[in-house]
Design a protein around this nucleic acid. Structure first.
Lengths: 231, 231
DNA sequence: CGCGGCTTTGATGTTCATCAAGTAAAGTGG
DNA sequence: CCACTTTACTTGATGAACATCAAAGCCGCG
């Protein structure tokens, strides 16, 4: 269960500029009344598929996954989201219920902003409205790009893409701890757990990466990039 | 080359309610000044990847495809769009240039609405802004859903999905003329041209469909649906 | 008429999922 | 703390699904 914090205040928020830079102080004060911040441990469920959407979710710190459980019982991960990824916008405007579940894959701090309050701000502040449209549009472009390139890549290409994603987009380092289990990776890039393992081992044997459990370090990034684009 | 028509007027437009129902008459009159309607034949290019985005595109009638040409020279179709699909919103807010090309796959009438003019309306009319957000969100949900289900389906499932899409979403009939060549279908659902043909023939032999060139008629829709969900 | 593009079918090989089996790691209860 | 269960990880063998290659028929077009 998450620990709830309410004492933060949007006006001083370090992340204000990333989402709400088009709001003035009085609007931010208004927002404060409709906002709750929650701290989650790695591996906690934030929302379940089908839950009513009451809040717009914003990731302050950490990492979460959006996923659906298929008929076969396998999880399919739509997207991994980090701070500044506006995943909260996804179905917020088109649905009353979540079309997917959300769980943390690292310790995370999430901000819950009441939807009607946010909509009121959008309605009353056109510049803010345009800004939200911008950000939503960007988020969607990213997800679509990833998804489409996944479909047309072979398994090695997908693994390469994944390794580069965490290196370039999430951790900004060539060594990191994979926050996802092999099985979760399989669900994210649509392949079997066995093949995730097999290809990671292959990459290790070929000297592309070093690997110890979930510790990964990319040794030959150029070649990994080549595999990613070639696949 | 498209034939350009300017004499239409938004206030009387039959499609007004589908996009611009949150605008009043004076706002619609304003829009009229920044709008051009163009008529295209089947197979014409509307925009090329990389073109500057000057207008929001709205499909009044017809059918278009959004596609990217891959490094291998193969076209990958992101989406097929029909009237009321708000494809025009896709990168409009996040990019200055198109990330994909658009071509008509049937005779079509498109409405070009100047982007700065549209943004001004959004900025000044919060209710309209929220409405646009709704529609954009819905459009995105649809595309994402299709894309994700494509990835996790086998070839037979994908073909079944495609046949049902045109039957249920586009033509609302069990007999129709496929507007896409086999090669285009391949690019849309990420498989080879040969296998598109092979599986269509297979479906014919199994009595699921009748087929003469691009004329398709679905004979056993229940079974096609089963294949689509099972795949 | 002949060329090029689209379609179709068959043969072949590669890629990948599935099955099976074994090891390691991580809870769980007495 | 140790047996016990469960879950994650790993490797190999097999077969199914799919792409690729090759060849031939069809049709529109210059």
């Amino acid at each position: 269960m998450p620990e709830v914090i309410q004492k933060t205040n949007c006006t001083n928020c370090l992340f204000k500029s990333l989402v709400f830079n088009k709001l003035n102080d009085s609007e931010l004060d208004f927002l404060d009344q409709f906002k709750i911040e929650k701290i989650y441990q790695k591996g906690e469920i934030v929302v379940n598929e089908g839950d009513t959407i009451n809040d717009f979710l914003y990731i302050k710190t950490g990492l979460v996954k959006l996923f659906k459980t298929g008929l076969d019982g396998k999880d399919h991960i739509l997207s991994v989201a980090k701070p500044q990824d506006f995943i909260g916008f996804l179905s917020m405007f088109s649905n009353t219920n979540y079309q997917y579940s959300i769980a943390t894959i690292e310790n995370s701090t999430l901000c819950f902003i009441n939807v009607p309050a946010l909509k009121k701000l959008i309605e009353n502040n056109g510049v803010f409205a345009l800004d939200i449209l911008d950000k939503m549009s960007l988020a969607v472009d990213g997800i679509l790009d990833t998804r489409i390139s996944l479909c047309s890549r072979n398994l090695r290409g997908r693994i390469a893409l994944l390794l580069l994603y965490f290196s370039d987009e999430v951790y900004h380092k060539d060594e990191y701890i994979l926050p996802l289990a092999r099985k979760e990776i399989a669900g994210l890039i649509e392949m079997t757990t066995e093949n995730v393992i097999r290809i990671l081992s292959e990459f290790r044997h070929d000297g592309l990466i070093e690997m110890d459990g979930s510790e990964i370090s990319l040794l030959n990034k150029k070649l990994i990039e080549a595999i990613s684009t070639a696949g």
